[in-house]
Write a protein that binds this DNA or RNA. Structure first.
Length: 275
DNA sequence: ATTGGAACCTGGTGGC
DNA sequence: TGCCACCAGGTTCCAA
């Protein structure tokens, strides 16, 4: 579930339902996530109110005053807000009950997500090394160009590196490279400034479009389940191996780049030959 | 310092 | 049906 657009959508969905609500109970049903949930520390949240919910990369930060909690959804995590007493689902890990008899539940089958209680979330080790937000003005051509000059990795791995820019996951990396006409294996230090500018524009536009769709598709996710349709959004390459390129009709190829499935058009995304 | 690969997990799918 | 291998939206950690 969790590409940046979905984390953003999740944030927008839960924020109005839990902001300014006082926490009355916390149930840790299964502490096993990427790092074990610190149950003792969690209990200190009781009595505090959620002041704000913000996003940094794919992390959600719920500020409760002198304590905050950080949530990451990993590969399979979802958050929902449901009435107290709603039947639990398999893999419900954390439940936070609020004064208004609603509760926030973190469900995560693969347990790659995390739930961390901390005093200063933005100084937490997980957040301090993060690169710029892709939709901010700090993500611009010269920024990308100068960092790319210093590296040897392929462009796909480069834009998926959260120390460079946060929130570009496998799906949107594939999509942005297609829109930019860049072969995924192009060494990042081969890009010129214009290509960097183009790539940045495409990353921004693909993320913005996805947020728009995520907003539509996942609008009702806080109710009960709700979510189908996300995959129906217009993806040009991801998940389209052996299907015709929307631009030229060539059958799309799939390769593995640093272990991640990578689909591209050999015709539209050619690898520049450095003699 | 940079880079590639393994590791962390469960669930779904497709082949035999 | 059953069993098994393989794949999946992410990130950390370790070794070279």
């Amino acid at each position: 579930m969790p590409e940046l657009p979905e984390v953003e959508t999740t944030k927008n969905g839960i924020a109005p339902l839990i902001e300014s609500q006082k926490i009355t109970t916390i149930n840790i049903r299964n502490a096993q996530l990427r790092w074990p949930v610190d149950i003792k520390l969690c209990k200190k949240l009781i009595g505090l109110s959620v002041l704000s919910v913000t996003r940094r990369g794919k992390y959600l930060i719920c500020d409760c005053g002198f304590l905050s909690f950080i949530i990451h959804l990993g590969m399979s995590g979802t958050l929902s807000v449901v009435p107290v007493g709603t039947a639990y689902k398999k893999h419900d890990h954390v439940e936070i009950i609020f004064e208004n008899n609603r509760c926030l539940r973190l469900n995560d089958p693969r347990r790659f997500g995390c739930f961390i209680v901390t005093e200063l979330p933005f100084q937490h080790k997980l957040l301090t090394k993060l690169g710029v937000e892709p939709l901010s003005r700090f993500f611009y051509a010269n920024y990308l160009f100068e960092l790319a000059q210093k590296r040897q990795v392929n462009i796909k791995q480069f834009i998926m590196n959260s120390e460079i820019v946060v929130g570009v996951g496998n799906i949107y990396a594939n999509e942005a490279l297609f829109l930019s006409g860049l072969h995924p294996l192009t060494p990042c230090n081969q890009l010129d400034k214009k290509q960097c500018l183009d790539l940045i524009r495409n990353i921004k536009s693909v993320l913005r479009a996805a947020i728009k769709q995520g907003g539509t598709t996942l609008k009702d996710f806080t109710n009960a389940e709700g979510k189908p349709g996300y995959f129906q959004q217009t993806l040009n390459v991801y998940g389209r191996k052996d299907l015709p390129c929307v631009e030229c009709g060539t059958l799309l190829r799939e390769i593995r780049v640093n272990g991640r499935s990578t689909v591209f058009c050999e015709c539209c995304q050619q690898l520049a030959n450095a003699n």
